[in-house]
Amino acid sequence: MANDPIHQFRIHDIAGPWNIAGYEISFTNSALFMGITVATITGILFLASLRGALVPSRLQSIGELRDGLIDNMVKNVLGEEGKKFFPLVFSLFSFVLIANLLGMFPYFFTVTSHVVVTASLAVFVVLLVVVVGIAKHGLGWFKLFVPHGVPMAILPFISLIEIISFLSRPISLGLRLFGNMLAGHIVLKVFAGFVVSLTALGVGGILGAIAPMAMAVALTALEFLVAGLQAFVFAILTCVYLNDALHPSH
């Protein structure tokens, strides 16, 4: 059905399914759009860095601005030490941003509107924090869960809360991106659906459809803002969490 707001999130096989090592694996529309996302990022960055002019062209500016934004963010949050994580943060930011923006095209599939994708990215970030933290500080990194100056009597309780707080990070990180994209696209579709069903009612319906039409236009603009903002938030929270791995003392 064209009016079903959930229909756009349905995953269907494009090729396959193949049976590989006992698992059913197929090339879905989600995989296709992940591939398109990566190809777009690579293509834009390749074209942007092709000329390397002193006075950047528009395309080169896009690449340089994106680079500068993430570079600033990494430097501000992680300091000079965090330079190593620039490629990671840049890749995550680019992937989320381009996936969000590609989802704004009609009939395109939004990769980040599936919790599996966003949660995988988030879990990867938090696992990286644990690995880097232990590699850098050894077991001393676990002091992160033992705040300074807490009386011994309530320390176990505080530690428990700190641990749960730490474990909830991938959930909130992944859930937020997923929720924003899902909710935005559903609301957009619902308002667009109002326009279609109201215009079927005749002259009065067409007049009545003006309001949801205006709403759909405004929501489209908002969705573009959300797409950029959520990519930015995802990147900066990655930096904030990595900061815990580098400097575990609160």
Binding site: I164, S168, S172
Partner: peptide
């Protein structure tokens, strides 16, 4: 002040706080 999300809209700030809280309860 990039750390404090000064550029972020109120909508995203609210959503962020809500998701932080829900995640804590959910994981617990």
């Amino acid at each position: 002040p990039i750390m404090q999300y000064q550029g972020a809209s109120d909508y995203s700030k609210g959503y962020r706080l809500a998701s932080e809280f829900i995640a804590g309860v959910l994981v617990g």
